[in-house]
Amino acid sequence: MDFQLSADQRALRDGFREILRARFGRDALRAAVDAPGLDRELWRALGKAGFFALCVPEARGGLGQGAAEAVLVFEEAGRALLPGPLVATFLAAGDVEGAATGETVVTAVSGTLVPWLAEADVVRGDVTAAEPLRSVDPLTPLHRVPGRREDGPDVSLLLAAEQLGSACASRDAAVRYAGEREQFGQPIGAFQAVKHLCAELLVRTEPARAAVYAAAVTGDPREAVAAKLLADDAAVRNARDCLQVYGGMGFTWEADVHLHLKRAWVRARLGTTAARAEEELAAAL
């Protein structure tokens, strides 16, 4: 058993993190918040980098990678708050023309929600009666449909990986801020009350990481649902605690904390939601 990233997997993750830093750094993120809309150029750049074709078989022009590699790049997407219907397009890359290259944007009904409906070229599920809602997340336009469409565990697994990346980003932001911000003549991170908040941020990410990676390795649908449950919790609660560590700054539009929290709320409602996951896991006991 070697339940650690291989050298290739680390290189893939680091390479993709680098691409995102260059193509979708903080300035690009804030520009996207100010001017919402899907950046087609970025989408094509992702396609060129092999993001969407990662798990398409080599015989069909893809990179032929597995679920373990998929969760690593989705973790990075979550860390960078990369916007767009990433999961639906990724899962359609094998059978929708142009999805693998980033030319075609694919979205899907997830539960009773449809992200990025107006921008998508291809839609999975029935959206004839879709109604827009004023999305809490400035980077995820949402519609609601009357009928439910249940997602498979593959959707939940990729969403869980994004939540994991977001939870890590909130943890890193909180720790960085706690080490820099000074009050009473010392960094606030030297106070136990703040220190213990930060410790819990790590205590939430590490079991979620083990759960997400294991679900990718085993392909067990129940593990994918369980991983989403823990990763949803880690992303939402880490963003909340990060907001608390930031103090007044955390409540501003200017800080990125709220962007992580709002996206985490959205992802928690997509795929298998907490109530359904808990019932499903209980039924299997």
Partner: peptide, 24 residues
């Protein structure tokens, strides 16, 4: 039921974390 379901996810993840730590 939901409480037990969540605990199932929790202990499943703890076992995976033990495997992760052992490999590390």
């Amino acid at each position: 039921r939901r409480r037990l379901g969540r605990l199932s996810a929790e202990f499943g993840a703890l076992w995976r974390l033990a495997q992760w730590n052992a490999s590390e």
